[in-house]
Amino acid sequence: MTFPFDIALVWLDLVGVFFFAVSGSLLAARKQFDIVGSLLLASLVSLGGGVIRDIILGATPPAAFSNPAYLVPPLLATFLVYFLFSSVERFTSLLVLFDAGGLALFCITGTLKALSFGVNPVAAVLLGVTTAVGGGLLRDITANEVPQLFNSRDLYAVPAFSGAALTTVLWVTGAFNAVTACVVAALVFAFRVVAWRRSWHIPLAVNGWHRAGVDSGESRGRD
């Protein structure tokens, strides 16, 4: 890996950490956690996926523990939500938007780091997805929420798979650069948000099963 690539990867990672951290703090606020609980949930969602990725790659200690810069976004997100949440709490889609931003960036950075470590393309895609959805899974379980990853009425992992696969193809073909990275991130973000807004979903685990309330015509409200 070249030095400029390392720097770009860290900055993309940090932006993704901030987006996910805000989503964690917003959920903590809506659950009426105290500020310490907000910080812990923000840290868990924003750093959890990267820690899992680094441990699998053998990049120890994980970046979240070896680089103090990774501790700044959760702190910043916690205090921003603490001071601003009262004025934005009516926007129920805000958490999803920040979560989608983190998902879009982490599926790229997770895949890139795996590829830079010499992992084969298929495994790199899987690690990219793990990085993207791992933190959100930990956040939802900790906050006693149904994990978005297992929500049959929504798409969460599929946008991450798409972004990781596109990143891998661009890397292998030599077409990956700052412009294409932005395009991939924008596509994943838009895919995730539109899927959420329109309640897109994929078939259930067993053919013939139906989603209660969705296939019968009941629609979920979106703010």
Rank of each mutant, 00 (worst) to 15 (best):
P62K: 07
L40R: 02
L57S: 05
V51A: 02
V51C: 06
S38N: 15
A69S: 11
A28T: 04
R53N: 14
F33P: 00
A28S: 13
S66K: 14
S46R: 07
V51H: 01
L39M: 13
D54I: 06
L47Q: 14
R30I: 06
L57I: 06
V45E: 08
R30P: 02
G37P: 08
L27V: 14
L44A: 10
S25D: 04
G50M: 12
I35S: 12
S46P: 05
D54Q: 05
S46E: 06
L75Y: 13
V72N: 10
G50N: 03
K31R: 15
P68E: 11
A29L: 01
V51N: 00
L44M: 13
R30W: 05
Q32R: 15
L47W: 04
F65W: 12
I56M: 13
A63F: 10
L39D: 12
L47G: 04
V72G: 04
S66W: 08
P68T: 02
L41P: 00
L47E: 11
L39C: 04
A42Y: 02
G37L: 03
P62T: 06
V51S: 01
V36Q: 10
I56N: 09
L76F: 09
G48P: 04
A59E: 14
R53C: 09
I35W: 06
Q32E: 15
P62Y: 07
I35A: 09
D34I: 04
I52K: 00
G48K: 03
S25F: 01
P61L: 08
L39P: 10
A59T: 10
S46N: 14
S38F: 07
A64I: 06
L57V: 02
L41H: 10
L76A: 14
A63H: 14
L27F: 01
G49Q: 07
G50C: 05
A29I: 02
V72Q: 09
A77C: 07
A28R: 03
P74C: 09
L75P: 06
S66D: 12
S25T: 15
A42W: 04
L44P: 02
L71V: 15
